[in-house]
Design a protein around this nucleic acid. Structure first.
Lengths: 169, 169
DNA sequence: CCTCGGTATATAACTTCTTATATACTTCGT
DNA sequence: ACGAAGTATATAAGAAGTTATATACCGAGG
């Protein structure tokens, strides 16, 4: 029930087409939402029918004509109310986190390999992450740094345990 | 397509009924997955039909007879393979994170109130979080601490900005 | 000229997730 | 004896999300 509101929020930064919104959702990792274009188009239709956005067709230098949407007064009001709803702790829903939660079921070598891969993903993401101009970006940077430190600590612990068990054998 | 695998993973800790799995999913916040009972029961049926789990009916001291599931050899193999799949960075999908991403659109007072509420949720969660006996729990603790520090820093910054603008008025 | 790649919109088919509802057994309090 | 509360299983209906596919416009390179 949230995608329409997320789209309203993105449109709050200025008019955009479905394509624009789709690519923004895909790229902006600090945003906290992701959706496929096949979901975006119907959602925009619903927003249009509901009077929350207005449509303007514009010719594009490349490709077929764009359908650019912008917030209406009703859309702005709806957005304001939605943004003001109380925050709750997000409950993660990701296969990778479940795999991490069962890391201990795997052999030390496999654990280490998975942690190294994950660590590198975190490091890449941290490099790509823009400097903190907003609270959400600063949050993201801090969390990435904390998780990177965690991954390194876990890898070191496995390595220490492995050499230890070899030495004491 | 992941819930069945998550259930296999939970069943790896020992036999359980649909009810058990549902309550574990609801309680264990370090797990990285959450699902409703109405989703768990059909998933268990599919696992049973696929031969990944075996069923034993047992009378319960309270309530109707329990249907306890346990991993079969095929289930254990499937679980092992699933756990070994490479990790990727989870992409968050939560309305609260979107609200945080658009915090700056709100008035300083509202921002502060939202941050304080969020901060308290984090603090509660941190208190409730068990000590780090597994990598996933240690990760969760570290991330909660980092996020709590972030929330406090953001709140302090808003407060500083507000008093500043009052003084310089 | 023709295909390839990027831009752009859209729908159909399918799977997954949520919400609502129904049933049944037991214990405990009134 | 009755009802409420906790345990336990289950399905139906609908909303949300994913995957596959189709169409169309334009410029660049072969």
């Amino acid at each position: 029930m949230s995608l329409p509101h997320v789209l309203l929020a993105l449109l709050g930064r200025g008019p955009a087409s479905g394509w624009d919104l789709g690519t923004r959702l895909a790229k902006d990792r600090a945003l906290g939402w992701d959706a496929d274009l096949a979901q975006v188009y119907p959602a925009l239709r619903r927003l249009l029918r509901g009077g929350f956005v207005a449509l303007r067709r514009r010719r594009s230098s490349k490709g077929p004509p764009r359908r650019e949407y912008r917030l209406t007064a009703a859309g702005r009001r709806e957005l304001r109310e939605w943004l003001a709803e109380p925050l709750s702790l997000p409950k993660p829903h990701a296969a990778s986190l479940v795999r991490l939660a069962f890391l201990e079921r795997r052999l030390p070598e496999a654990r280490l390999a998975s942690l190294h891969l994950y660590r590198d993903l975190l490091a890449d993401e941290l490099e790509r992450a823009a400097a903190g101009t907003t609270a959400a970006r600063r949050r993201r940077l801090l969390l990435l740094e904390a998780e990177l430190a965690w991954a390194d600590a876990e890898a070191a612990a496995i390595l220490a345990g492995r050499t230890l068990s070899k030495e004491t054998r």
